[in-house]
Nucleic acid binder design. Structure first.
Lengths: 266, 266
DNA sequence: CGTTATGTTGAACGTTTTCAATTCGTGTGG
DNA sequence: CCACACGAATTGAAAACGTTCAACATAACG
């Protein structure tokens, strides 16, 4: 009864409340207070919770993927995060005791359920649990700030490249291929998340393919030249200051009149 | 000895760990574990901590103001937050056990110091303390997301207006005038925070003054027409769909060729 | 009183958006 | 099984918003 469901879960190794979640619990008196973790399966388009819903639990993605979005007063949506197996979800509820986001699934997915009581028990009795939750929430803020920084300091090419690399990295962490993957989100989602027009996303993907940086076939993406993609994210002033002998390496950052990407610019 | 310093602090009523921080502590056994809170005075330009510094404590602003910034790989700065009396600071350290931000003061300021041990004690022994810290951290993330949303969905005029209104609101919460205040940050800071060029900030402030929305005299700002400013933040489609009989009310959102703000656009 | 940091203003340019027209894919119903 | 329809994605041309560059003004500070 007091055994945590995800103790034996195959995805537990990626669990956002850490790889040590089982030891974590076992080493404390929290077990008596922690309720049995249950999980549930959802399908594409299903919602886990909506903004305004009572904050009853945290969730951990076991499989699939999801997106979290906030709604502006003018009723348009802003996607604030994507979630993959192991990611912790729902901490937006701590602020107002009700959820601030809408979370919906991008494909068939399953999630663990951790009641707020369990969370409280964890915080009370486990030093590690405290650290993990606080670390996770702190990291959330840092990630959002990084995202904000990207919007402010990077061009759209850099942001999209950065997005793909980040996706690749997150999938690799979960034991999947870092070079080939299928996007579970639409271009619309990507554009919304990155704060650009879908047309821009489309154009950039096409251009990147022409540059032999990636291969695109609808939702299926292959990263062909990751080192070069990394350079693109870093480069900004580089593209302007270095001399022409550098060749086309930073073509996408240069004047739009010189290179294939010219179709992007005006 | 076990009495919290800020128990009698005049700023305690605005304290980020809630208005009830004293009751909070008194109602629990936390007092034995909580160390005496000390405070310290800093001057303009002083740094509280830097990215990479060990995470030893949280801080609460008692007076003055500060900014937190992150540094990109290319060494340029991104201001992620401004702090005013009562604000809780330093939770960025939970993620990696070291600080991720640089925090520096915009004017002479004083801050309370709360050691991580005290924080732990609070979390262990006080339900209210847990709620307050988690709520604060959750709210931080939501605020950053709001900021991100603003950058994505709002024009520069809307963002700057929103910034001024937010400032006004935060100062009002602290018992100061919501209509008249002195900016403790430079135009450079504002521009950096909002992700625009200083020239744009300057131009927009001038235009808003011409529109009789605000009065600007260097750092001193007077909000003249708050209701109209609120409208500007909300309006987006409005400015395009409503007919001309509406007069100049949404001038700043319209074509830049018609109105005083024309200097902003191309 | 001069030097430096901060702020303002103008004009040209560029990136990204918007509008508009197609194409592609997937699923639905005849 | 095909036709149809709808959403998703692509592509082009024009327009807008904000940036950049450059010159200048003003305040702060030693």
């Amino acid at each position: 009864m007091s055994q945590l469901y995800f103790k034996s879960s195959p995805t537990c190794e990626y669990c956002a409340l850490s790889r040590n979640c089982t030891e974590n619990i076992n080493n404390t008196s929290a077990m008596q207070n922690v309720q049995v973790l249950t999980h549930k399966i959802y399908h594409k388009g299903d919602t886990l919770f909506c903004a305004g819903d009572a904050f009853n639990a945290l969730y951990i993605m076991r499989s699939g993927s999801a997106k979290a979005s906030a709604t502006t007063i003018e009723a348009d949506e802003q996607i604030v995060d994507f979630y993959f197996p192991g990611d912790l979800l729902g901490t937006d509820g701590f602020a107002q005791k009700q959820h601030a986001h809408n979370v919906s699934f991008l494909e068939t997915s399953s999630v663990c359920y951790i009641s707020v009581n369990s969370v409280n028990a964890l915080l009370t009795h486990s030093e590690l649990g405290r650290q993990q939750l606080l670390s996770n929430m702190s990291q959330n803020t840092l990630n959002q700030q990084q995202q904000l920084m990207n919007v402010h300091k990077m061009t759209s090419i850099q942001r999209l490249t950065s997005f793909l690399l980040d996706l690749s990295h997150r999938l690799a962490q979960r034991g999947l291929s870092s070079q080939q993957f299928t996007l579970s989100m639409t271009r619309i989602d990507i554009a919304n998340y990155l704060g650009m027009a879908i047309e821009t996303v489309s154009r950039l993907l096409t251009s990147m393919q022409q540059q032999r940086l990636i291969q695109v076939q609808r939702r299926h993406i292959t990263l062909v030249n990751i080192p070069e993609m990394r350079k693109i994210c870093l480069s900004d002033l580089l593209g302007q200051t270095e001399d022409e002998s550098d060749g086309m390496q930073h073509a996408m950052l240069r004047s739009t009149t010189d290179y294939p990407l010219s179709s992007i610019g005006g």
